[in-house]
Write a protein that binds this DNA or RNA. Structure first.
Length: 489
DNA sequence: TGGGGTTAT
DNA sequence: ATAACCC
C-alpha cells in the first residue's frame, strides 16, 4: 500500500485487514461520563466487562514520534539543492547528524569531520551550531501533535511522546456506535504478531496505529518532515518500538511481544533511563544483558543504587513504565552556549558572554516571559579531566532589571553582563591563569507576564500609570513594579 | 564530542 | 550547585 503525499510517495507496509464484529453497537451507556474514559464492553470473548477509571494508567495508548535525521531534514527543506547529495550537519569538529544519502556512504552520527571527509570526500557540510531554525521547526512539530492530544511531551528537539488514550477511546466508542465493520493496522506490527480482534487492547493499539499514521501524514503534508512512530502501552515501550523499522516507518507493539522487545536489546545501556554512570555501576555487579538485570537480586541492587533507583531500573528491564506523559508546554529554561579551543583572558570571556547574552535576550523577548534567574556555566580545560565536568553559578535577577525585559530596546545588557562577570569571578580567580573551553548562559525560572484582568490591582495601577515609551529616561520615573508584586500568576 | 534540554538529589 | 538523564 502506498500513501501519496504532496511531494512523492511514502512506502508503508501492507495493511493487515480483518473484520471486527462489534458486539454491542450503539447500545447502553455509550457516552463516557465526563472525567472518565468511556467504558468498553467486550461481548463474546470476555466473561467480565472492563472499565477504565479516569487517569487509569492500565490501558494507555502512547505514541512516540522520532523525526529522521532532523537537522539534516530542516537544512534540506531550507535548501532543496541539498536533497540528493550526501549531507552532514556540522558543529565544531563533529558531524552531529547526516541524511540517509550520507549514511549509505558510511557516515554516522557524531563522527568527527576528519573521519567523515576521509570516508566521503564529496560529503556536503552545513554548519548547524545555530539551533534557531531547528528549534522553531521542533516546536511546530510539537504543536501539530498537540492538535491530536494536549498530552505531548518533548524529548530533545526531534522526539515527542503523545498520550492518545482518550482519542482512542472516542474512536472505539464511535466504531461501536457505527456498528463497525473493519479495523486495520497501519504500519508494522512488532514481531509480525497476529492481531487478535477479540482483544480490546489489540483494538486500541490498532486504532493507535491509525492515529500515528495520521500524525506522520500531517507532519509530512504540513511541515515536509518524515519520521518514525511507535505505538505501545507506555512511554518506554513506544520509544523502543518506534526504532524497529528505521527511516520513515511506524510500528505497533502488542502486549504479548513486550518481552521479546526488551529482550532484543543487546545491552542494558540500551534501555532509556540507564545512562553512562548507571551502566558502569551495573557492569561492576556483573550485569550486562537485560535478562541479567531482570533476574538480579532486588536487595543487592538496592544496596548499590538505592531502593528508588533500583526498583525503577528493574521495572524498566521488564518494560514496565508507569511514568505519565507530562505535557512539556513552553520551555523551563533558555540557554545559549559556545565551545572553543581556548579562552583565557577576562576580556575574551566578556566578549563571549556579551554575544551569548545578545542571542538570549532576542529569544526571551520573543518568548514573552521573563527570567528571574540567570546562570553562567563554564568548562575548564584539563588533560586528565573527567572530561565533561562543568561548573556553574546562578543568582536571582534583580527585579528592576526584570522590568526592562519585555520593553524592547531598554538597556538590560549592561547590568546582566555585570552580574555574569561577577558569577564568573566566583569560579575563576583572575590572578591565576585559566583556560576555558566552554561558556554558557542560561535564563531560568521563567514567569509569565502578569495578566491585567479588570478588577486586579495591577490593572488599575497600569491604567493610571502607563509605562513611558521614551525608553531612555525610565530610570528617572518611578515605575510600577508589576512583576515583583506577590500576586503574579 | 555539540548545543541544547529535563529531573532528582 | 551538581549530577544524572535525554536528544
Amino acid at each position: 500500500m502506498q500513501l501519496s503525499y504532496g511531494g512523492g510517495c511514502m512506502e508503508l507496509p501492507e495493511e493487515e485487514e480483518a473484520d471486527w464484529l462489534c458486539p454491542e453497537p450503539g447500545g447502553r451507556g455509550s457516552h463516557a461520563a465526563p472525567g472518565r474514559v468511556s467504558s468498553t464492553t467486550l461481548g463474546a470473548q470476555s466473561g467480565h466487562n472492563k472499565t477504565l477509571p479516569s487517569g487509569s494508567t492500565a490501558h494507555r495508548v502512547i505514541v512516540h514520534t522520532d523525526l529522521d535525521c532532523f537537522y539534516a531534514q530542516v537544512e534540506m527543506i531550507h535548501n532543496p539543492e541539498l536533497r540528493d547529495k550526501p549531507l552532514g550537519v556540522q558543529q565544531k569538529y563533529l558531524v552531529v547528524t547526516c541524511n540517509y544519502e550520507a549514511r549509505r556512504l558510511g557516515i554516522q552520527k557524531l563522527m568527527s569531520v576528519r573521519d567523515a571527509k576521509e570516508k566521503c570526500p564529496e560529503l556536503v557540510l552545513v554548519n548547524g551550531e545555530d539551533l534557531t531554525q531547528y528549534r522553531e521547526m521542533s516546536y511546530k512539530v510539537t504543536e501539530l501533535l498537540e492538535e491530536f492530544s494536549p498530552l505531548v511531551e518533548r524529548l530533545g528537539f526531534d522526539e515527542n511522546f503523545v498520550d492518545i488514550t482518550e482519542l482512542v477511546e472516542k474512536r472505539l466508542a464511535q466504531l461501536q456506535r457505527d456498528g463497525c465493520s473493519k479495523v486495520s493496522v497501519s504500519g508494522h506490527v512488532y514481531n509480525n504478531q497476529t492481531v487478535n480482534l477479540h482483544d480490546v487492547m489489540h483494538i486500541r493499539l490498532i486504532i493507535g496505529s491509525q492515529i500515528a499514521a495520521e500524525m506522520r501524514e500531517a507532519m509530512y503534508n504540513r511541515l515536509g518532515l518524515t519520521g518514525c512512530a511507535g505505538v505501545a502501552s507506555n512511554k518506554l515501550l513506544s520509544k523502543l518500538v518506534s526504532g524497529t523499522f528505521k527511516p520513515n516507518q511506524q510500528t505497533v507493539l502488542l502486549p504479548e511481544s513486550c518481552q521479546d522487545l526488551v529482550g532484543s536489546l543487546d545491552h542494558i545501556s540500551k534501555i532509556p533511563g540507564i545512562g553512562y554512570k548507571t551502566t558502569k555501576r551495573l557492569e561492576l555487579l556483573g550485569l550486562s544483558s537485560v535478562r541479567d538485570l531482570q533476574t538480579f537480586s532486588p536487595v543487592i541492587l538496592a544496596k548499590e543504587l538505592g531502593v528508588s533507583m533500583a526498583q525503577h531500573i528493574q521495572k524498566l528491564s521488564y518494560g514496565d513504565d508507569h511514568s505519565p506523559v507530562a505535557s512539556s508546554g513552553p520551555p523551563q529554561s533558555l540557554s545559549d552556549e559556545d565551545s572553543f579551543k581556548k579562552c583565557s583572558s577576562e576580556m575574551e570571556v566578556k566578549k563571549k558572554i556579551e554575544e551569548l547574552l545578545a542571542n538570549l535576550l532576542d529569544r526571551i523577548s520573543k518568548d514573552g516571559r521573563k527570567p528571574h534567574t540567570i546562570r553562567l556555566t563554564i568548562r575548564k580545560f584539563s588533560s586528565t579531566n573527567k572530561w565533561f565536568s562543568r561548573e556553574s553559578r546562578q543568582c536571582p535577577i534583580p527585579s528592576h532589571v526584570i522590568q526592562k525585559f519585555g520593553t524592547g530596546s531598554s538597556d538590560v545588557v549592561a547590568p546582566l553582563v555585570g552580574i555574569l562577570m561577577k558569577l564568573f569571578r566566583k569560579m575563576i580567580k583572575l590572578e591565576m591563569p585559566f583556560h576555558l573551553t566552554l561558556l554558557s548562559v542560561c535564563f531560568s525560572n521563567l514567569k509569565a507576564l502578569p495578566t491585567l484582568t479588570k478588577g486586579s490591582i495591577g490593572f488599575y495601577l497600569t491604567q493610571s500609570s502607563p509605562p513611558s515609551s521614551s525608553g531612555k529616561k525610565m530610570d528617572d520615573v518611578p515605575q510600577v513594579q508589576v512583576n515583583s508584586c506577590s500576586f503574579v500568576p
